[in-house]
Amino acid sequence: MSNFGETLHERPTKVDELLGSHLMSSLDKLDIVARKIFSGKTQGERRSRRRGQSVEFADYRQYSSGDDLRFIDWNVYARLDRLFMKIFLEEEELTLGIAIDISASMEYGNPNKFDFARRLAMALGYIALSSHNKVSLFAFNSNGVQRLSGLRGKKRTRDLGQWLLDLLPTGGTDFIEACKVISTSRQGRGVLVVLSDCLETEGIKQGLSFLVGGGWDVFVIQSLSPEEVAPLDSGLEGDLRLEDAETGEVCEITATAPLVAAYKQRLHHYCEEIREQCTRVGAGSVRVSTDVDMEQLLVEYLRGRGLLR
């Protein structure tokens, strides 16, 4: 068995290894951005659909007994001789959902796609917790969806990290079923970041439709390893019998330049197809290679794509 694609990097075993102190300091000034306005259960740092006690005026309504007299608009009463209540937009907390693909295909590459997803999830979760947002975590594969909900405050960062460390990539991918489960969860609505290699032959668009329909502002981060992006540059050669990590299917190839060129053409078309499907359902997407620098990814790319500010 060739060791092509086998993870040779050091694997994270501690929470600190998922998120270093240097990166942590860089993330403190970032926050999650939602492209939609959501209503939260608790007061937070962003606008909510719920009318509340913020300073931003929203509407008027007629007074009914029992209302707080402080919100009566006396100027209108003077002109119209009727009592109207001023309604203000209430600032609520944002829920950041992070869905991690933990199928077997993620356990591949240098750097490892699964490790990359865990580090990215850790970083995004830290940003959200630091900004007083709620964080919900989902891990999905063909065996179902694991979740960790209701994390609030920076003190839960370690819980977040430990939950990620405990994940184990295995099985196949059932993206549609996972999306159904996530979309029907009552953990609140907000921004849902999907971390996956998206190597799913069917159901990407349908799954995303479930998520968007469930109220999530979906952002797909498709991560691929360098071995998948440029096989020849990564040392792929010879007559090979490829075995699919999830399905066990076999494909025999001779690693020739024309074949790899055809493969890269297919990959390019496939990634474009993913991007188009995301666009059609209103989801954002970004494709990254796992060898990209994490700080650069967060500070430059995801900021540029509007996920962070």
Binding site: L199, E228, E243, A262
Partner: peptide, 25 residues
């Protein structure tokens, strides 16, 4: 005769299958 090929585990053969010539045997 088919070549004796070296086994290699990959994340997915989906894209390779479409590109490769000598499959299905």
């Amino acid at each position: 005769l088919r070549l004796r090929r070296q086994p290699l585990r990959v994340a997915s053969t989906m894209l390779w299958e479409r590109a490769v010539e000598d499959l299905h045997a």
